[in-house]
């Protein structure tokens, strides 16, 4: 994580002519406000981790900064109630399926929308924008009717993955990136007799690798964190992703554990950790310019 890097991809800060360069009292006040805000934003994460390591819940202010009594018991507690490994595997299959579908079909669609002239392109683009505005949740009833009642895909990985199989935001990002490549590149490749498949694979794709990473990261957080759909479509706990098993634990059986607060927080840490770790590792790619400059129009 380097600040210099994030600047070069995000904002070219010109220190000499920006008002902040004068380093007045306002500048320091602003910085103080930023750090205070960051503290408020991070505190629940800190509280999650600390609470998950405490033998007894202590909700007092001093309890938030313990010096002793650390234990991993809560993790084995939650693992007794919820099969953590199984749930994590299910979350992984759900997320992996969505990423695979998005990368394969999303890139093809993004490339076609940006670079190829074909009948129906504008209609497809309009429909994609509509999907970005109308949330999936509002169509939950007909999709439930289709997938569970008509096709009998309840309690199956296919049923969980299908409504999310291609992430439209990622398609939009792919399209924006392919659009930014210079047209001469494509003209030259076509003059050389390269096929469209070859142009996509050997010319365009290598140039948009950073965008790929961003789009995959963006696609990851969708299914990994999704609760409503897998909750509706699975009754078999052996197939439920961690977000669902943990939520069920919170709403049903928390009363039976000896330290429900610790156990729930331990589960929350396990659920949050992969997404947070991936994000921190790749955070410098996570800038709006990498997300396809969608707001620059």
């Amino acid at each position: 994580m380097s600040t210099a890097d994030s600047q070069s991809t995000d904002v070219p800060v010109t220190e000499t002519d920006s008002p902040s360069a004068r380093k007045g009292i306002g500048h320091w006040l602003g910085l103080a406000a930023l750090f205070l805000g960051a503290l408020v934003f991070l505190f629940p994460f800190y509280y999650m981790v600390v609470g998950s390591l405490q033998a007894k819940p202590d909700t007092s202010l001093r309890g938030a900064f313990p010096t002793s009594g650390f234990t991993l018991d809560n993790y084995s507690q939650i693992n007794d109630r919820v099969d953590l490994a199984r749930s994590l595997v299910n979350s992984g299959i759900f997320t992996g399926g969505v990423i695979l579908g998005t990368v394969v079909f999303g890139i093809l669609a993004g490339y076609a929308l940006a670079r190829l002239h074909f009948r129906g392109r504008d209609a497809l683009f309009a429909m994609m924008l509509l999907v970005l505005i109308v949330p999936f949740q509002l169509l939950i009833i007909p999709i439930y009717v289709m997938i569970v009642r008509t096709y009998g895909l309840a309690d199956s990985y296919l049923g969980i993955i299908l409504p999310f199989a291609i992430n439209s935001t990622a398609v939009f990002v792919f399209r924006q990136f392919f659009l930014q490549l210079p047209e001469e590149l494509f003209d030259a490749a076509r003059l050389d007799g390269a096929s469209e498949v070859r142009i996509l694979w050997s010319v365009a794709l290598p140039l948009v690798k950073p965008a790929l990473l961003t789009a995959i990261l963006l696609t990851f957080i969708g299914p990994w964190n999704e609760f409503l759909w897998p909750f509706l479509v699975t009754k078999d706990t052996g197939l439920q992703p961690l977000a669902v098993t943990l939520a069920n634990y919170i709403s049903n059986v928390a009363g039976r554990a000896t330290n429900p607060q610790g156990a729930i927080l331990a589960g929350a840490v396990v659920l949050a950790a992969p997404a947070v770790a991936l994000f921190v590792a790749f955070q410098r790619h996570f800038t709006a310019s990498n997300l396809g400059s969608g707001v620059k129009g």
Partner: peptide, 24 residues
């Protein structure tokens, strides 16, 4: 870098995990 990560992190985290903390 640190500040950006601090502000973005709740966005990438599951609602279920975050609700668990807010409950307490």
């Amino acid at each position: 870098g640190f500040l950006r990560v601090s502000y973005y992190i709740p966005y990438v985290t599951s609602s279920v995990a975050l609700v668990a903390v807010w409950l307490f």
